[in-house]
Nucleic acid binder design. Structure first.
Lengths: 243, 243
DNA sequence: GGGGAGAGATGCCGC
DNA sequence: GCGGCATTTCTCCCC
């Protein structure tokens, strides 16, 4: 345990990214209170002093500390302790390790940003540039507009010169998508002093309740898929040798 | 590279949790398309075949595959490749490693669930059991009610026997919290055929715009903190020796 | 830093 | 499976 403690302490001091495989229990106190009983997990301490506790299953960390935490390492009665504190956020996390399977660390550097295609913004741009996707007569005015009354995805006119507010969703549109649109339409009606403002949901799908609510409010729904420029991995493409 | 490949393949086959420190680039195709240029990262493969790519900073994985993906490992021209597929979800992820800093793996077992205090549900229960927290005359009827017209946190009567719907938020209540409450109140008015239904937001704080919207709709706001039963780490408590 | 809204959201529960 | 909704949401962008 002592040599692990030294190793972890040194790695943190050198701003390395540390990985620990261990059996531990975890207590968290901050925005909420949490206790995780003894079990085998992965602990990760990043170079920005983020701390993550990962169980051997699932996507999300089960416990964590945000960047800029301060970590203390100690050994007591054959157990390895990591106490992590973020005084500014009043968050505290304690890890009590009964067994350490492995410790590894390395100075990792990575300034790269991810490039994503197929976001809601990409959908807005696609509709703005191809208005016929939602209606043969739609004439777009603006997109991704940050206004005081809300963030409007696409804005334009229909064939009768009514203003149309389009709310895009890259996934199944739900009730909150409709209430969001409703909020924009109401604000805009008030602002323009006109009742002739239309609302439209553009999404691949819509839940039945959301569809009903949209109908009740006179909003229309158009099925639109988010754009994907690169259609790779065709069915017949050969894959790398598996094992 | 070859020995790393063998090590990773064997670990995956044995359902171990694998950690790789490496320099890599990542491509993802599925719900969206994503590309992450070459940089130094941590790759984690869990026993349920979740795959995570973590940059050395930040909380969330930059790339990932959900559980039940199938991973292939290969070496070509001195590079280590991991190709991960989830055919059911039509998701694909490719990792191209230029350099491997370390590989570690271990069979981790953990069936434990986390216990959390201070959730929105805890807030609902607290208000239900201590109605004077929101008003001296509030009489609670039910809590956490899954109804057809919505999921109502706390439901009760005020001193004038008006029905009151309380929406709890454990954080700063925002516009969507108000629209959510508005939806419940409207549905309930329709259902009961009465206009005397009150709406109330119970949260530690409320944003200025949300407060205005609540006022416009005749909803009240009450400042309530989420419960925290264990107040540990008092200011003067001694901490473990730091370094 | 607050406010607003998206996310390849994730995860939980109920039907 | 879908639907509704919270999350120690996280993250980004704008004011």
């Amino acid at each position: 345990m002592d040599s692990f403690a030294v190793q972890i302490r040194d790695a943190i001091r050198r701003n390395e990214t540390v990985v620990i495989g261990c059996e531990c229990e975890v207590e968290y106190s901050g925005r909420a209170e949490a206790f995780l009983p003894m079990g085998e997990r992965l602990i990760i301490i990043k170079s920005d002093n983020t701390l993550l506790v990962h169980q051997p299953e699932g996507n999300a960390p089960i416990n964590y500390m945000k960047p800029d935490a301060k970590h203390s390492v100690a050994v007591e009665d054959g157990r390895l302790y990591i106490r992590s504190q973020n005084l500014a956020l009043k968050e505290y996390l304690d890890i009590n390790m009964r067994k350490v399977h492995f410790v590894n660390s390395h100075a990792l550097k990575d300034g790269q940003k991810i490039q994503i295609i197929g976001t809601e913004k990409d959908m807005s741009e696609m509709i703005y540039n191809n208005p016929s996707l939602i209606s043969p007569d739609f004439r777009p005015l603006s997109m991704e507009e940050h206004t005081k009354y809300g963030f409007i995805d696409v804005f334009g006119y229909d064939k009768d010169n009514n203003l149309v507010i389009v709310e895009c969703k890259r996934y199944n549109a739900d009730l909150s998508a409709v209430t969001q649109l409703r909020r924009y339409v109401e604000k805009m009606k008030k602002l323009k002093g006109t009742a002739n403002i239309k609302g439209m949901i553009a999404a691949p799908k819509i839940t039945s309740n959301a569809e009903q609510m949209a109908k009740d409010w006179g909003f229309s729904f158009v099925a639109v898929e988010p754009p994907k420029y690169k259609e790779r991995y065709k069915k017949d493409q050969k894959t790398l040798t598996h094992f």
